[in-house]
């Protein structure tokens, strides 16, 4: 609950005591990693407009802005969750840097070259983080593809249990199994198949 008292510290105080501002950022990131809606909303609110105006000013649409920003939020979220996480810059610098890289990359993919005008905004090196993020994206794509090629009811059963974290009892009922044990058995069979699909793809090398 430390999140709250720091968040409500008046701005003037934050300016005089930068340590507290840092504490505030740490608390926000901690909240983010724990899926705290308040923290997510605060980070969203503090950063979105900056990113949106950057993208709109650089040939982007409102949809592009939302896509890129949410991608950056995911990267930050997954970074915050990792054990080795250290924050080396302020949140808004980090988010802006990621969005900037992502957007320039997308513009290049679309074949539009933009002059890299040096803006006044401060940026940090995010290449390594983005590489990690892309690798993770690729892994998730493999998993989702494997899930989709499983067929029903395996797909829904596994999604229900592993992704939506539903109770086995409920699942058995929803799928019409006579008892939870049967459903469980079926789930293991499906899981073995999924695992095989996943690892063949994964080991072929993304």
């Amino acid at each position: 609950m430390t999140i709250f008292w720091v968040t409500f510290t008046p701005k003037s105080v934050l300016k005089v005591q930068p340590v507290k501002a840092e504490l505030n950022e740490q608390a926000l990131l901690k909240g983010l990693a724990e899926n705290d809606t308040k923290a997510i909303e605060t980070i969203y609110k503090n950063n979105f407009n900056m990113v949106q105006s950057f993208i709109i000013n650089n040939n982007g649409t409102y949809d592009d802005a939302r896509d890129i920003f949410q991608e950056a939020m995911i990267a930050l979220y997954e970074k915050a969750k990792s054990e080795s996480f250290v924050l080396t810059s302020k949140i808004n610098t980090y988010v802006y840097s990621i969005c900037r890289r992502l957007w320039l990359k997308r513009l290049q993919q679309m074949g539009r070259f933009v002059l890299q005008t040096d803006s006044l905004e401060e940026t940090v090196q995010v290449e390594d983080d983005l590489e990690m993020h892309e690798k993770r994206n690729a892994e998730f794509t493999i998993m989702e593809r494997a899930l989709n090629s499983l067929g029903e009811p395996c797909k829904s059963l596994l999604e229900g249990f592993y992704l939506k974290k539903l109770d086995m009892q409920e699942l058995a009922k929803a799928f019409g199994y006579t008892n939870a044990d049967n459903a469980k058995n079926q789930k293991y069979k499906c899981l073995t198949r999924l695992k095989k699909l996943f690892f063949t793809q994964y080991n072929i090398g993304e």
Binding site: T37, I40, Y77, F140, K165
Partner: peptide, 17 residues
């Protein structure tokens, strides 16, 4: 689990937006 987390987080982002 990570995939589940991400899907859940994406949903939260949409709601927040």
């Amino acid at each position: 689990n990570a995939l589940s987390d991400r899907q859940h987080f994406k949903q939260t982002l949409h709601q927040t937006h």
